[in-house]
Design a protein around this nucleic acid. Sequence first.
DNA 1: GCATCCCGCCAGTCG
DNA 2: CGACTGGCGGGATGC
Length: 387
Amino acid sequence: MALASSASQETGSGHSTYCRKQKSLGLLCSNFLSLYNRDGIETIGLDDAAAKLGVERRRIYDIVNVLESVGVLAKKAKNRYSWKGFGAIPRTLQELKEKGLKESCDASDNSSYAKSFDDDEDEGFSNLTTSSQDNKSNPSCVPGISRSSKTENRKEKSLGLLTQNFVKLFLCSNVNMISLDEAAKVLLGDGQDPSMMRTKVRRLYDIANVLSSMNFIEKIHHPETRKPAFRWLGMPGKSESTSAVAWLLNESKKRTFGTELTNANIKRTKVVSSICVNPDQDMKMQLQAQVKCETLQNEVERSNLEQDSRQTPQNYQFGPFAPVTVAQAGAPEKNKENQVHDWESLASTYRPQYHNQALRDLFAHYVEAWKSWYSEVAGKKPIQLMS
DNA sequence: GCATCCCGCCAGTCG
DNA sequence: CGACTGGCGGGATGC
């Protein structure tokens, strides 16, 4: 039951190709953020998100979990999250960092597992997930035993926690570049069996994707090793701040809403040959967005940070921002500006597209977010491209 | 070939 | 007990 209900919309359109890139968690995350980072959003319903973004609920969980782990969202109740915004990130990272340092400090090697959640989060709100674990002494291998902490065990492996630990890796050490393999090795106790490693790495890929889409990290190739790795781009941690601006710029370029809602029917199993794009429309939007960016950029720069906003044009591994078929031309524009309400019902037939008004709001927000974010984090001069 | 990672089964949890 | 959650890893995709 469930899924598939809304499916089968346009079989008529003919060739829709399966294009993996369009379905990446990273892109989905960008869309998710674009969709909810705006005025009037306080709570987010998972079903709603899934419908609007045209993906299965399962995928929403993935995103939401990592977003929550960095403070952007907070679980309110079943099926419901509250939007905390980007402004909540600095603090969350700060907490993570402190926590991480503390842990590594007094738990040098022999950790007493079952961490307590010292989490000193003020305002009871930001109670992130909880403790950390990463103790390695607890094999938990032997199946069939240790029923005591079945839940614990599961929690330990949650995407959210893993995300936090991954982030801590950067925040609490000097490494600012690490391959997922290494990360997995560290996060896992130590030489674990390969299958465990593989799973861990898979998860890290998921996480890396969404973190990349938020520009927390960036994929690169290790200078020498040649191996792919991820580099921490910034924010708190040390004094290296980063450009939220970059995020913004990148974001706008990358956005391409409208992967068909309900991509449920196009499974990858369906091999094909036709292309999966149709740039025309997108192009337009892209340009538009770009213009807006310039504006934004000025805006931001003027707002007193004298840093060079774009450090790297935009070589985000994220890819050539998957173009996407933008609905068949039609009469897309709905001049109502209260689209928000109706989206839900339109979800299955209307693909969200951000037009002028919406985009404007969106960016206004970004600027705002950036400001508070920046003022909170910075104190000193940013920039600091390490090598 | 191997790095990436989407997809969705299905086992726990929760209301 | 049914709905929610979300670990997990098979295997397709991308390069």
